[in-house]
Amino acid sequence: MNQEQLNRMTSGKGFIAALDQSGGSTPKALKAYGVDESAYANDEEMFTRVHEMRTRIIKSPSFTKEQILAAILFENTMDRKIDDLYTADYLWEKKGIVPILKVDKGLAAEENGVQLMKPIDGLSALLDRAAERHIFGTKMRSVIKEANKEGIKAVIEQQFAVGKEIIAKGLVPILEPEV
């Protein structure tokens, strides 16, 4: 764990920028920026277009550590580069912004008034790769829709179980049971 990043997350000011649209939400995000489906022929081209968009955002003079504490990245973005640096390295070294990785794979169907995270296949390998890419921590989301004791207990148990795996790999988890 990077002590300087930990200090920034502990006492720094700013918000966390969400740059973590995944495969399912990427077409909608691109369309909002004026890039429709005709600009790409397959998933690889789509992810290239969204990385180009994220790169423009990250390199913008207004995307600074004075306002932004950290940025949440999608796995595909973590593995891409900006100016010959992996995205996390560019964020930290050039911008002073802490890199965080979205690790959840979406939401399961609603049950007991909640949506748990879908299984995160390959989590251990993903966390190893995140550590190699100098990711500070992770984010994972589930949703509580009703005040259902069983459902809420299941969300908390799942979030903490995955959080413990993340801590064991030396990363800092953001537990996100959205209400």
Rank of each mutant, 00 (worst) to 15 (best):
V143F: 07
L127C: 00
L127D: 07
K102R: 13
V50I: 13
A154K: 04
I144Y: 04
I97A: 12
D84W: 02
E93I: 05
D104V: 01
P61C: 03
I57T: 01
D128N: 14
V98R: 13
K149L: 12
A108G: 15
T55Q: 10
K149G: 12
I135L: 06
Y90F: 12
F136S: 10
V143M: 11
G106P: 08
T138Q: 10
E157S: 07
N76Y: 07
R54N: 03
S142T: 15
E44D: 07
T77K: 10
V155K: 04
E150A: 14
R133L: 11
G122V: 08
S142F: 07
D104G: 04
T77G: 00
F63N: 06
F74L: 07
R54D: 00
E75T: 11
G122I: 12
D79W: 07
V114E: 08
T55H: 04
G96V: 09
L127S: 03
G96K: 06
T48G: 08
I135K: 01
R54Y: 05
L123A: 04
L127V: 01
S60C: 05
V155R: 02
A70L: 09
G137T: 10
Q115E: 09
K153P: 03
A125Q: 13
T87E: 05
I57M: 15
K105I: 01
R133H: 04
K95T: 00
M53D: 00
F136T: 11
E157L: 06
Q158F: 12
R54M: 00
G122H: 08
I72A: 10
E146S: 15
Q159K: 13
A161M: 05
E111P: 12
D128S: 11
S124G: 10
G163A: 13
L91I: 04
I135V: 13
D84H: 15
D89F: 02
I57H: 09
G137K: 03
I144H: 01
K139G: 12
L73N: 13
L69A: 11
A71I: 08
K94L: 06
G106M: 09
I152M: 07
V114G: 12
E111N: 13
E66D: 12
E111I: 01
N148S: 03
E150L: 03
R49F: 07
